[in-house]
Design a protein around this nucleic acid. Sequence first.
DNA 1: TGCCTGATTGCCT
DNA 2: GGCAATCAGGCAA
Length: 210
Amino acid sequence: MEPIESAAIERGERLPRAFYAQPTVRVARALLGKLLVHDAREGRTVGRIVETEAYLGRRDPASHAFHGRSARNASMFGPPGHAYVYFIYGMHHCFNVVTRPEGVGEAVLVRALEPIEGVELMRARRGIRRSDRELCNGPGKLVQAMGMSRADDGADLVSGALGIYAPVLDRRDGRLSAREIATSARIGITRSADLPLRYYVRGNAYVSKR
DNA sequence: TGCCTGATTGCCT
DNA sequence: GGCAATCAGGCAA
């Protein structure tokens, strides 16, 4: 993946609904290198997705959807291309992208971003003394830095203030080659802890854990 | 660098 | 009642 040249990485096309409806593992890998953009009242923040995890719904014991639909996970069962934002550990939120057709209940957790634009706004939200590397290198951190909240649960990523774009870096539109993507077990779970469903950009300094 | 722990609250096989 | 897809800070080495 190309390094950050400046704050001026050009946004390309916004990802269409069909992108999110694909198999969850494919979406989790394809999201690496894409730009998450949030236009908030205070300003725009943009981060390049460098780490994701796939959660495979009712066939995955580690997924919130494993035991079926509930009030908390309802948006996970909704149409693809919407956000699933949940509250965890009494103080943090995590941001997921809903995949597959409505009713299936699968999603991709976004675990880390490389800050691209609005870095000072991110720093203000996260605490002034933080290095760039500490702004978005974890699922709770990036939600805070991007100014997202539980209010974004269910938000449509295809239209609205929160969206994902394919950057115009080169002819590949930010797509990564297979060898640029590393795979590991998912972080912080106890069930199905051995499954290799975490994906991250190999060698990228903004990933949450090596 | 890496391990351990406290904080804090919504939700429930 | 117990646990959870986390984070930050403290301490030892």
